[in-house]
Structures are given as structure tokens and as C-alpha cells.
Design a protein around this nucleic acid. Sequence first.
DNA 1: CGTTTTTGACCAGCGC
DNA 2: GCGCTGGTCAAAAACG
Length: 277
Amino acid sequence: MDDQVDHKNTCLDEVIFTSVADCLQSSLEKAFKFSLYNYPCQPISPSNMGQIVNYRYLNLNPNSPIVSSSSNEADPKENVGDKSGPMEDHNEGDQHGVGETSKQLRKQGKGKGEKKEREARVAFMTKSEVDHLEDGYRWRKYGQKAVKNSPYPRSYYRCTTQKCNVKKRVERSFQDPLIVITTYEGKHYHPIPSTLRGPMVGENLLGHHGSAILHSFPRYHQEFLMKNQHPVNYQSAGTVTYQRCHGDSTNYSNHQQVIDCGLLQDIVPSKFLKHES
DNA sequence: CGTTTTTGACCAGCGC
DNA sequence: GCGCTGGTCAAAAACG
């Protein structure tokens, strides 16, 4: 495969946006379509408002599910070739079935030899002082783990809505503690909890078309997109970048560097981490 | 008192 | 097989 990622290739399991321009110009439409149903925005307080610096849309093609173990997720070797079925649709996509926990299933020996299907995932990197950015949904923390080579732990959250399987993981980049990496996994097929509802922030700022799309994103993502949707900003936005933690960082010294050694490193095949600059 | 967070234990997958 | 790591569970504690 070429070093260049073909953003227009809908067969890609994973697409990483190395720049805002890339995302906006070629792949964003798909991301919008995806996010439209999954990440409606809600107002967030100024205190936890994050500034998005990078994001990635994973698993564009529903017919090409991310299949992975529970540990080392997006191993490209696993993603390629295993077309065990569409990851589409939703509640029945409950990975373990209603009423049975994965632990129970493990104890019963169920699922042995079967690989767990991965939900589509979107990883966002935001600049924020708070770890858990408000996105309108209610989350329950169910775990926290120390991250290898990082002083910052990774937190695991699950949507509290019944039968909703959406999860998210939050961790800080150890190279830049201001960077919060949030990875959403799965889709919400329920309305936003009413207790958190409020006026849509972007509604008065965007026209019909734009708002319909942008409302799909959490507030801080929305702001980021609004800020960069004008072509004038493409260039500067294009300097937003990332790098591997164990590569030689000198290659990227001219750009704002976002060191990502945690979630994104995990979920992104190394072939996509080649930075074409 | 119901809900959420904390945290140690457990399990599966992977590399050696 | 063994050790390491990531992900999840679930009891206890904390919180509102």
C-alpha cells in the first residue's frame, strides 16, 4: 500500500486525518454522516471546553468491521481480511447479548474462537484542562488503568443509557498534558438524556445546512470545525499534526507537535502513522 | 438511598 | 508456558 492514505477509499478500515484540510476536504463528509447519528453536541461549560487539535475517524466501511481482541485493538493484521460481517446495527449488536456479561460468557466458555467485533471508533484529541469533556451523554466510569510509559491513567466510561453499548476512553498525552485523547466506540441509538439538554450552541451561528451537520459533533469538535471550515484557515489548520512517540521527533519540528503515545498509538496501524510532510 | 467512582482482581490476547 | 498489557468486572466507598 502506498504511503499516502487514500481518504476517498471507502474500503479503508481506518482513516487518519493528518491535517484539518485533509479531513475537511476529502473525508469529513463521511465523518459527518457517521457522527450525525452518534455524537450530537450539547452545550458545555467554558471550564471544560476543549480545543480540538486532531481527530481521526475509524472504520469507515460498515462491511469491514474492526475485529479485534480486547487488548491490542486495532492491530492491522486483524483488521485486514477478516470480513466476518457487517458491524451495522445497533442494539442487536450488543456484543454479548442482553443480560449476559462478557465475564459470564467467558466463564461459560462462550465466544471461544470467535473474535469480538469492534464498533466504529472515533478518536479526538483536544486541548483541555479537564479530562472528561461534556458531550451531552451521561457516562459511568467503569475502570481506570495505568498507561504504560505514561504518568496519566486511562479512564473507561460507558453510556449509562440502558442497552446502549457506547464506550469511551479518556487519557492524557504524557508528552503534552494539555492534550486529552478521547476515543468513542459504538453508536448511540437513543436521545440525549433530557437532564443535560439545553439550547444548541451552534444553532444561531450556522445556517440550516451547516448546523444540521455540525450538531452531530460534541461542542468542542463543533467549534473546531467551525473555526476551520473556511478555506482561509486550511493552511494554518494543516499544521496541526501528530507524531509517534517512539519515532525520531526531529522530522516534525516545524509543526505544532502533538505527541500521542497512548490510545491513538494503540488504535492506529503504524502504516498510517507515516506523516507525509 | 440511589447513583457514581474507586480500585483490586480477573481474563484474554500477544510476544517471547 | 509464562509474563506483560489492555479491558472489564464488581464490591466497597464516596457522593449528592
